[in-house]
Each structure stands twice: as structure tokens, then as C-alpha cells.
Design a protein around this nucleic acid. Structure first.
Lengths: 244, 244
DNA sequence: GCTTGACAAATAATCGATTATTTTGATACT
DNA sequence: AGTATCAAAATAATCGATTATTTGTCAAGC
């Protein structure tokens, strides 16, 4: 059953480009574990649906149960880990239905958040968008170099979160961040490259331009299409490669 | 997501109304603590914003740190507890801004979920709504008897969740359940009685009727108004009694 | 008077060991 | 052969004690 090779937990790398904003470097072991595990799951290093054996994980990470459970608990909040009393933890499975729900909810929530951001965002918010856009468009994804993929993923996530960061609704931002996590896992697991008929950089630019120009309908429609296309794209890959 | 999560009115009434298919409940100490703490927070027994001292809590509940942290971790997922590395836990604060966000998001998400439920729900879903409505309307809230308030709250929550239970979107249901929790805390903390110009029972009936009649626009509009009125009502009480 | 630093108390985080539950596997029985 | 039963192994949950960090206090120095 336990087809996920736990020995692959070994070479996990921390301290990536997304290392932190307010990170004092004084994190607890539980926090560090949460980060490492999150990255391992989103990157596909830990197979979707696989069981997480506490004892093996404990040895792999050289930690005790307490911080391990602590870290796993946070991933449950993120929707990346499932838990059952007395039966332990497992990596949240992926499925067509889940992908479609994530896409659908992103269309609903992220667009709503963008609408609110355009209504409420200030000049600093606009500036943050342009900066995030610029950094994203400046970064190329080179399938041959995995570190560029990770870099792009981090900046892409940053761009989308920045877009909606002006909405003034912390809970909504939390939901969107969570959905983005789930979505990114599908991309990193299934999608190396965007389909040829898309110019994703162009799409991002249009959304950003519409946002800072305060053109609600334009920006929201562009964002919705962007999310929808990504969903369709991912769905095709998922159907092609099959579900693990 | 949530493993064992149900209307758990801990010490008082057992054999609750919920028809349990997932009778997981209360296996581990951590689960029990999560339920007790959730109830304590939503009921206002634990003051919003107050610090949760692990050592005192450990003694209060006669448990060790491990299950205590376990339970608290779940409440973080619920948005009822906040956490900071090395600084421990505190009950999530309440505020006007938070209440308005909760109301706003409920209008957005719960209505969306109802729309999807009407589109996808089957006959069993319809039946569940009518049952939940009946039981809710049969239960009177008597301010003199707190147990009737708790009972009503449980049935009210059950009704709203049943309404949207046909949407086929587990994540969306999770979000809505979470928002309902947060919303109910405001009502219970501020010991609300509905304002005289409202007939809440009537409102519930109209929503339910519209739902089972598959009248999307009618049902959704009624639900939105219902949520909005509740929000306004709570806001007035919050403003009157002041924010802690 | 105010800040700074050292120290002590309070509190949180982690560990190693123990207890409880689930799963596995062998055996006996129909 | 299939199934029920029970013990052993695997795994999860919990505990008590220890370590690490933060917070509070007070005296020295500016």
C-alpha cells in the first residue's frame, strides 16, 4: 500500500527562494517541518494519497513526534494533509473532481477578491502589483533547470496574492491562498509547460493593467479566463497522465 | 479536512439531532478537547482575544500537553484560535471588521453553494432540507433556558449546512462551515434576540421552499437577505455593547 | 529619569518512554 | 475453501520530564 517511498523524504531542501518575509530564522522545529513538508507535497515529492508513517518520518527528519504532529497539523489547515483519529495522516489525494472544484472556487473567490481589491486598494497596492508582475515576467521557466521552475512558481503565487492583497478581507485571502496552494500542486505535478496557444505572460499583464487602471469588469474577466484556462489545461494533463 | 467534526454539545445533551453516518466522534483525547474548546469559544465561555495558557489549560482539563496542542491545532483550522511561534495560543479576537467580513463572505459563498446545490442536489437533499427546517421551526428559543438556545443553535447550523450540502464541493462546504462557526460565535456572545421586525422562522421557510422548488433566483435572494439581515442585526448589538 | 543588561520566573517546545489502538498473520473451525 | 478468533506486531496517542524561549524585574550606568 505504502507505495510512497519515504526514503525520498531525505534530500528535501529548505531555504528556497520563498524563504520568508518576516522570517526571523528562529522558527520552531514544528514550523520548519511544516514548510519542508508543504514544499514536499506541493512539489509532488510526497505522493498524493500516500500514507505518512509517523515513525519513519520521525527518523527521516530526526525529530520527535511532537513537532512532527505540529507540522502536520498545519498542513491539515492547508488542505494538503488528511487525518483520521487513530489512523494517522496521509497526503491529500488528487482527483479530477478536486481539481475542478479548486478551479471553480478560484474563479469565484479570487475574482471576488480582485473586485474588492480594485474597489479598496490604494496606490501602494497598485505599485506592489506592478512590481510583482515585472519580477514574474522577468523570470523564465526553463524545464531543464528545476530551480527556475520553483522560482517561477514562487513569483507566480506572489503575483496572484498581490493582486488580491488590497481586498481588506483576511479570511478571504486565507481561502485564496489555500486554493492557490492546492492548484499549484496540480501544476507542479502534472504540468511542465503551458500549452502553445497561451501566452501566460500576456495574460498576467492584462490582468495587472486592468487592475491598476481600476477597470473592474475587464480585470475580473481576464482573471477569470486565466484561471479557467489553467484549469482546463491541467485537466487535460491529468486526464492524459491518469490519476495515480 | 475535518475528521471528527459535528455538533458536539459536550456535557449536556447527548443523542443529538444529527443523523450520524460518520460516527467517528470523540475517539482521542485530542478530538474531545477540540470539541470542548470549540464549544467553549463559540459560546463565549472563553473570552475573545484572551490568551490561552497551556499550563493552566492542562490543569483545567486534566490532560497532557500533547492532546492539548492537538486540539488547539484543529481550532486554528477553524479560525477560532490564533497561534504564534514561541508565544502560544490565543482565542481569535472579534471585531466589527471581522463580523462584516464573515457576513460578506457568507453572502458570497453560502449563496454560491446554494445555487450549486439547487443545480445538483437530488431528492434526498430536498428531503433533508425539509426535515432540518421542520426540526428547526419546532424548536423555540427561550432565553430563560440556555439549553434551548444551544439546541436552537445546533439545529440552525444544521439547517444552513443542509441547504448547501448538495453542492458537491467539499472545500466550499468546509469554508461555509467555518464561516458559520465564526458567525454563530457573534450571535451567542452577544446573546442576540432577533429584532422585532423579523420573522426568522418565516425566512428559513421561504429559503427552503425556494430551494426544493428549484427556484434558484428566489431561494438565493432570500438566503442573501437572511444572511445580510443577521449581519446587520449583529452589527448593531456589537456596536451597542462595544468591542472588547 | 531613562535605558540597558543580567538574572529569575513563566511559559512554550521538544524529547524519550509508556500506553492504547489498529493492523497483520497464524490457527482452528465449519 | 472460506471465515472467525485471537495473539503478536505495527502504529498512533499520550504522558512526565527536560530543554529552549520569552517575559518580568531590578540594579547599574549614562
Amino acid at each position: 500500500m505504502d507505495s510512497a517511498d519515504d526514503s525520498s523524504l531525505g534530500p528535501l531542501t529548505e531555504g528556497g527562494p520563498s524563504a520568508g518575509f518576516l522570517d526571523d530564522g528562529k522558527n520552531t522545529i514544528g514550523s520548519q517541518l511544516a514548510s519542508r513538508l508543504r514544499e514536499a507535497i506541493i512539489s509532488g515529492e510526497l505522493e498524493a494519497g500516500s500514507k505518512i508513517n509517523l515513525d519513519k518520518a520521525r527518523k527521516t527528519f530526526n525529530v520527535s513526534l511532537s513537532p512532527l504532529r505540529e507540522g502536520l497539523a498545519r498542513l491539515i489547515s492547508d488542505g494538503l494533509v488528511e487525518f483520521q483519529d487513530n489512523r494517522g495522516y496521509r497526503v491529500a489525494p488528487i482527483s479530477l473532481a478536486n481539481l475542478e472544484e479548486v478551479t471553480s472556487l478560484r474563479e469565484e473567490l479570487e475574482v471576488f477578491a480582485l473586485r474588492e481589491s480594485i474597489r479598496l486598494g490604494d496606490v501602494e497596492w497598485e505599485g506592489n502589483i506592478m512590481r510583482a508582475l515585472h519580477r514574474l515576467n522577468r523570470t523564465e521557466r526553463d524545464a531543464a533547470r528545476p530551480e527556475t521552475l520553483e522560482q517561477w512558481e514562487a513569483l507566480h503565487r506572489e503575483f496572484h496574492l498581490t493582486l488580491i492583497s488590497g481586498c481588506g478581507k483576511p479570511l478571504l485571502l486565507h481561502f485564496c491562498s489555500l486554493l492557490l496552494n492546492l492548484n499549484d500542486r496540480y501544476r507542479r505535478v502534472f504540468l511542465i509547460r503551458t500549452s502553445g496557444d497561451r501566452n501566460v505572460g500576456q495574460e498576467h499583464s492584462e490582468i495587472a493593467q486592468g487592475a491598476v487602471a481600476r477597470d473592474v469588469d475587464y480585470a475580473c474577466e481576464k482573471l477569470r479566463q486565466h484561471i479557467h484556462r489553467t484549469g482546463t489545461n491541467l485537466r487535460n494533463h491529468l486526464a492524459t497522465k491518469g490519476i495515480a
